[in-house]
Design a protein around this nucleic acid. Structure first.
Lengths: 209, 209
DNA sequence: GTCTATACGCTGATAGAC
DNA sequence: GTCTATCAGCGTATAGAC
């Protein structure tokens, strides 16, 4: 029986507790290895509440997914609003993704690593979602204005973001044991070598925070 | 009731039928959305046989996984045995992976796209398996003998194979609607631009089949 | 070795009190 | 809105005949 003092704990909203618990469990065990009872237990709510708020386990996952997609989208919008060159935008996004991977591991895992098709059958693949489309557009804009050398759009995007995302996967899988930000400078230099017109050294400098 | 004539159909071994059916189902619906009954039905065998041969659903998945890892490993050994430069080896592997993605879609999907952790909890991640280690070694050998410019090993490998693998993911997710081999030449040219010492145009030429 | 029929636990979901 | 108690169905696994 908790003392009254314990009640002074910040009363985190119920929805939030559920989503936080769900994210943690989904990432650690995988969606299908988590039951509604598990979520209920970890979030300290009743099953009834979960069904009232989200309509069931799939509803929780979908809500989580949309929520995080929104966060992601917002992050990209912020970067675009910052008035950088398109190359700098790419750099900044990679930097942010690398930092997220270290500080908010579960989010990146859930968004980049999870197979949503298996539990959200009606959702299109993540890569076709707005944030990823925008990332591809940034590369296209860069080619249009001559910042980035012309080439097939899929190839160029894969070369810019694909290798970074691949490193994120390797990090999440525990193969790379150094924090990703430590790779940032060398990776960026490597990415643009041969992808930008001659003598554009300024792409090297880290973007301002 | 089938006529005797039907019995002339090549008697494919029972194990093989099970594994083929399982691969198909796992890839289409995801491991957790497939029941032993589904496999049994599609393979035209009884549940008992599945338990006799593989000990259960997880056993089927594990057997399938090992089997395909072996195939993959063999493919790489063949390439290494071919006496090519390390750069050519990378090219050849990317070419083969692209071709596999088109011709043996399910295999690539199951090996590169599936989250094995969720149903084979004791297996290390695919990327730490021998084939992938060998791919990283090829890049390292290339750096050692001066074919490939020196740099961090993770970064260089991600730049060489990561972008190709990323394109495979995009293709499997249905975003890229052209067969991957059509991207091969431009991608290869793009990959080595800035990664090999000056004037090494020969990397461009497609490797002999 | 192969099959059928059956058992049993777990999970998603609901009903109904508060 | 929140909770507890309960249900129905599915999916793994086994027992035992052939």
């Amino acid at each position: 029986m908790p003392f009254l003092k314990d009640k002074e704990i910040v009363p985190e909203p119920l929805d939030c507790r559920i989503l936080t618990a769900a994210l943690d469990l989904f990432v650690r065990r995988g969606y299908h290895n988590v039951s509604v009872h598990d979520i209920q237990r970890m979030a300290n709510v009743s099953i009834g509440s979960i069904y009232n708020h989200f309509g069931g386990k799939e509803g929780v996952a979908r809500s989580l997914y949309y929520h995080l997609l929104d966060e992601f989208e917002e992050m990209i919008s912020d970067v675009i609003a910052e008035d950088l060159t398109n190359v700098e935008r790419c750099n900044k996004l990679i930097k942010l993704l690398f930092e997220y991977t270290e500080s908010r591991y579960e989010i990146v895992e859930f968004m980049l690593h999870a197979k949503h098709r298996e539990f959200l059958p009606d959702e299109p693949p993540v890569c076709s979602a707005t944030p990823f489309r925008t990332m591809r557009n940034i590369v296209k804009w860069g080619m249009d204005v001559g910042e980035i050398l012309h080439g097939d759009s899929w190839i160029t995007t894969s070369r810019v973001f694909g290798s970074a995302i691949h490193m994120i996967h390797l990090r999440l899988d525990g193969l790379i044991d150094k924090p990703l930000p430590e790779f940032y400078d060398e990776l960026i230099e490597n990415i643009w070598r041969g992808l930008v017109p001659e003598k554009q050294d300024q792409v090297l400098k880290a973007v301002p925070d």
